[in-house]
Design a binder for these strands. Sequence first.
DNA 1: GCTACAAATGCAACAAGGTTGCGTTTACTG
DNA 2: CAGTAAACGCAACCTTGTTGCATTTGTAGC
Lengths: 151, 151
Amino acid sequence: MARAPAAPVADVSVDLIRAAGVKVTRGRVRVLDALHAARQPLSHAEMEMRLDEGSEPAMDRVTLYRILDSLVACGLALKAVDTRGVFRFSAAGAQRQHANHVHFRCTDCGGVFCLKAEPPPPPRLPRGFRLNELAFDLRGTCAGCSSREAV
Amino acid sequence: MARAPAAPVADVSVDLIRAAGVKVTRGRVRVLDALHAARQPLSHAEMEMRLDEGSEPAMDRVTLYRILDSLVACGLALKAVDTRGVFRFSAAGAQRQHANHVHFRCTDCGGVFCLKAEPPPPPRLPRGFRLNELAFDLRGTCAGCSSREAV
DNA sequence: GCTACAAATGCAACAAGGTTGCGTTTACTG
DNA sequence: CAGTAAACGCAACCTTGTTGCATTTGTAGC
């Protein structure tokens, strides 16, 4: 062993935040750490619960909203809406790889499958419209649910 | 001619609601009519405004929520979440014609715009996967919100 | 290390969207 | 036409998210 340094210096989140050109605050580090530790996008409420579990004092509700938005603004996190209409946040690195391909979403199990195909080029937009993002989603039944249905 | 009966009996919405096996109330008919007349999915707020324009007395906020949910429950309407996290409703029949073209979703106002373009052909699916629906969504800022931003 | 300033935080209040409970009215059944 | 379950209106409440302002804190420059 003898590998762990005296202080936890090698904090990935700190470096990322600094590199993004914004202030490195305890709140931002905690939140970004939590986003990186999560395997699914987290809602504000879920994030609040996770932060409460730690030893540090609870963070203000509004501050958490602002931290999440600031992480999105500087490209370290992504914001999306879930089926209930609630915003969910995820670490940006986790999804960069999802930006440029097609997804299959199973309407039975909710699973998301990445297809190898590239998304098609966007059609021409009416005057004044600005494109930010492109989602080509196929919905249907995945192989597992299909065979289970057949029973 | 001589086809039109004395009373406005040929109300499509009334027949649909009756056929769905739920009570035919004035509220439900008004809402379903509005959904059929709309070319885009409507939010609760937009629906409220449209109903206010008519001559009939305004409908209670909660009642509108319940009517919309009841129409969804009996299959006459569809409920989806827009990019701002607000629920939008559309007539169930209308959705079939939306199945086969491209949508632009404004991340500012949540509006949904139908583009003239046809969706691209689906890529090949892995064995066992069954395709039901195909959604090619573009996200960005619509013309209205773009110009408003520029001010 | 100290200072100054902008950025970040905490708090209170607010706003929009949506839900629940309950008493009253209304559409359908017999 | 009476009885009943469903639908309605109202009030209150909840969750999610935002705004304004005073205070604290991170960081650049000395």
